[in-house]
Amino acid sequence: MATDAALRRLLRLHRTEIAVAVDSAFPLLHALADHDVVPEDKFQETLHLKEKEGCPQAFHALLSWLLTQDSTAILDFWRVLFKDYNLERYGRLQPILDSFPKDVDLSQPRKGRKPPAVPKALVPPPRLPTKRKASEEARAAAPAALTPRGTASPGSQLKAKPPKKPESSAEQQRLPLGNGIQTMSASVQRAVAMSSGDVPGARGAVEGILIQQVFESGGSKKCIQVGGEFYTPSKFEDSGSGKNKARSSSGPKPLVRAKGAQGAAPGGGEARLGQQGSVPAPLALPSDPQLHQKNEDECAVCRDGGELICCDGCPRAFHLACLSPPLREIPSGTWRCSSCLQATVQEVQPRAEEPRPQEPPVETPLPPGLRSAGEEVRGPPGEPLAGMDTTLVYKHLPAPPSAAPLPGLDSSALHPLLCVGPEGQQNLAPGARCGVCGDGTDVLRCTHCAAAFHWRCHFPAGTSRPGTGLRCRSCSGDVTPAPVEGVLAPSPARLAPGPAKDDTASHEPALH
């Protein structure tokens, strides 16, 4: 009773807030009518008042009428009001819900409408889902798969039609296919003929059939049928067999079959498995989609049935006599038709004709302190090069084509190399640097090759510096006499390219 009084008091307290929050009759008014909170006449009256005075006034009048009803109607109103779709449509209802007392429970059932309790003993237990329907569909599909699609060729003596089998029958139906081979029951999904010589313990000319048996419980189990008994694959494991010639990621696949039913060829011909030897223990289905393919039931050349050999690369099948050149017997292992072999060759040939990528240039590290003349020119003028003790990398590039010797140069053309002071002394051009340390401070000019250098860098042994005729380390061993002091540049003949010694390969005349 306390809860009923509290709900009535809360409705009177929030009546105006609810009326202002509800700006549309749908969905709240319609939901109240659906849950029998508002009768039909009051529903029509509220809609009429909404058209006349507006939605807030109409709902305020409806809530005032609701306060005169019993506690069950008020409880049902609060339940409908706080439904998710009403809270989404009328956003101003959320503060009312947040301020609702926590001790007021809106989930209690309506009085007088409590459903009768059902004894637990009368409640049926839930049924577990079964796979009976899938099993029945598999039974119905198996006879259809064994139905012949056409008439065999005159040369083929193997013609068999499976008798119709009602689904209610649980007995196995067997077809006489000759040579002791028996087909599987209607619940078998796949059958492959297997030679009895590969099964340990088999006697006589009995041949087993590799099947997948579907049981009534819905589970499946792969086994071997020899005669009327089934054997699990673990009985046929043979770890010492060295003649297993397995197909790549293979499961067994029928390579020879008669049109209309699988079996042995007439005249004692023995149908073979995809792999010879003992049956392997793992009978998992292969991951290669080509091995799941269903080959055609007629020859791809003459479009006739009979004894066919199936290609492992495509769905086509052929007569042995229709092949070019014809085959006398079934080859062992994987067999592919000429079209598949030709496609494989065409895929391999473009790969062989692809040009080989060019090898990157060989990189040879230079000892610290040495650099090529090109690196000396590329440096920024007026700045010493940083990191001189790091190992430089010199790339061996292809030799350029031989060019004509340089033409003779006048001494005026070499004027930018040297600057003559007032006393006739050779001065260095701006930006000249030593080729060893890279520093341009207090550098000297070689009178023979006009290269800038430090005496301490080229002659670290402490050799005394002569007063005139300074030469760098590369030119100090040259027998050519030094030019007379005061000459602007060496003779043009000295600039012609010539053979250089091994220790002077990195010091070429550089223009500054």
Rank of each mutant, 00 (worst) to 15 (best):
P162M: 05
T232H: 06
C223K: 05
A186F: 01
S241R: 04
R272Y: 06
Q213Y: 13
A152W: 15
K243H: 10
L47I: 00
G197Y: 06
I209K: 02
R174I: 03
W65C: 04
R149D: 12
K259Q: 09
V123K: 13
T151G: 14
P266I: 12
E40S: 02
M194L: 10
A31W: 01
P39V: 00
E40Q: 05
E17A: 07
F77I: 02
K52A: 10
Q173D: 10
A138M: 15
Q172W: 15
P101Y: 02
S239D: 02
G197R: 10
K50W: 02
M194T: 03
I18L: 03
L13C: 03
L158D: 07
P125F: 09
V38M: 04
S250V: 11
D4P: 01
Q262F: 15
Q94T: 04
E167S: 08
K50P: 00
A152K: 10
L81P: 03
P56A: 05
K133A: 01
V37K: 05
L67M: 05
L146P: 06
T130L: 12
P166W: 00
G260V: 14
P27H: 03
L175D: 10
D84A: 02
R257P: 09
T68W: 00
R247E: 15
L29R: 04
W65Q: 00
P119Q: 10
V37E: 00
T151P: 10
Q182G: 04
R12G: 04
A191E: 02
D34E: 00
A117P: 09
K111L: 15
G269P: 14
R174D: 03
A5P: 07
G208V: 02
W78F: 04
V22G: 01
G112I: 11
H35Q: 00
V206C: 05
Q189C: 02
K111Q: 01
T183P: 04
Q173P: 11
D34N: 03
D4E: 13
V123E: 08
Q213H: 12
E136P: 15
P148D: 07
Y85Q: 00
V206T: 06
R127W: 09
L273H: 03
V22S: 01
D4T: 00
V38G: 00
Y85G: 00
H60S: 01
R79I: 03
A19C: 05
L210A: 05
E136F: 05
Q173V: 14
R15G: 00
R190N: 12
I224Q: 02
R203P: 10
G240N: 15
F43D: 00
G251C: 09
L146A: 04
V118A: 10
Q182C: 14
A31V: 01
P27F: 01
G150I: 11
A58S: 01
D34T: 00
L128S: 07
L158V: 07
V104K: 00
G201N: 10
L28A: 01
D98Q: 15
Q57N: 01
Q57S: 03
T46V: 01
